[in-house]
Write a protein that binds this DNA or RNA. Structure first.
Lengths: 190, 190
DNA sequence: CGAATAAGTGGAGGATGCCTCCGTTTAAGA
DNA sequence: TCTTAAACGGAGGCATCCTCCACTTATTCG
């Protein structure tokens, strides 16, 4: 996954500029959490003690800012894929997916963005697919999951359902469980 | 389903007002289709040859306008539930859900709105639940679908996945098919 | 160290869209 | 026809977006 590299490349070279860049990301993270992904950009610039022009120079579009804010957090979710390596194949898969759901549940912005066409978020998706691949493959090799689905299909099911407004976490998990059951191999045909 | 009644009640009494109301809905339908659900309200008023205040008087919030535009179309989807009555239980259910998916696929605005809290769209949901209820019950009575899910859970799976951006309709239908497979009764336990 | 310079900065200001307020118009009933 | 309550339109205040350009400063090199 080259994402963090790309991120690093985008980071400006000059010391003061780099400080502003980091300050903007930090301010944006907080503002998005407090005000949602529609938080006024000028407010974010203000919180970062930076002119609005500096924000726009670093992040020409709002989407790009959202991306950069969440990229490293997605990285953490990817990392979590290795933490479940010693669980049963099916449990490992669903546990990891649960981790993903918990994460995106708190950041609707990301889910919205994940849907749209977006160069850098594409890398995000690639990272998730790479992280989840082994987990899915293991469950498939164990004969637990139908072999005709890929990680991206699974992620589509999960992220789609995660985007719905549920009355409770329990309900969300129940619905997710039902849908994920569709992944399992059928004892009898059809 | 009282939805259309409510809609009728909201329609103004005076002839000129009623004309404006209808004109606004017609203009909004076109504008939403062309420009997405974020189409400028002043643009919609302009297209309807109506002042912006008239738009706001009839539809105090943007959401309310979206609702009214799509309500009657949702009605049609509900109607479609009776058209599949003579198919096999499972086929009837999935065919109807497919009809729903085709519909919402073209109107992202509705899916967005369907998620949020919204008084009148609540009625929408109620309508869909009432329409789909018999189809689901039939499949459950035939022993094809697990008995511990309700229509709203099914709709949540379907509308959630419909909200994802798929590369193709075929892919979307495949993913939906996998998820809906989770509804089926398992020949053997676990 | 002290220019030179390229990189970076801030915020004014034009554009757009939201929504309200209020003076004016008009349909409907007597 | 007259009255009146309902409906109308658009000006204008406000928030946010985004660009432009005159000014500042970190870095480099003599």
């Amino acid at each position: 996954m080259t994402t963090l590299l790309e991120l690093e490349q985008r980071r400006p070279a000059r010391a003061d500029a780099r400080r502003n860049y980091d300050s903007l990301i930090a301010a944006a993270r907080i503002a998005f959490a407090e005000l949602g992904s529609g938080a006024p950009l000028e407010e974010i610039a203000r919180r970062a003690n930076v002119g609005i022009a500096t924000l726009y120079r670093n992040f020409p579009t709002r989407e790009m800012l959202v991306e950069c804010v969440y990229l490293e957090e997605v990285e953490a979710v990817c990392q979590a894929a290795t933490d479940v390596a010693d669980l049963e194949p099916w449990t490992a898969l669903t546990t990891w997916l649960g981790r993903f759901v918990d994460y995106v549940g708190t950041k609707r912005a990301l889910v919205d963005a994940l849907n749209r066409e977006s160069t850098a978020l594409q890398a995000c998706r690639v990272g998730l697919v790479e992280a989840g691949g082994p987990l899915l493959a293991r469950a498939q090799n164990a004969g637990l999951v139908r072999s005709d689905v890929g990680v991206s299909e699974v992620m589509q099911i999960v992220s789609g359902i995660s985007g719905v407004n549920f009355a409770s976490v329990e309900l969300r998990d129940k619905v997710l469980g039902v849908a994920l059951d569709g992944l399992r191999v059928r004892p009898t045909g059809q």
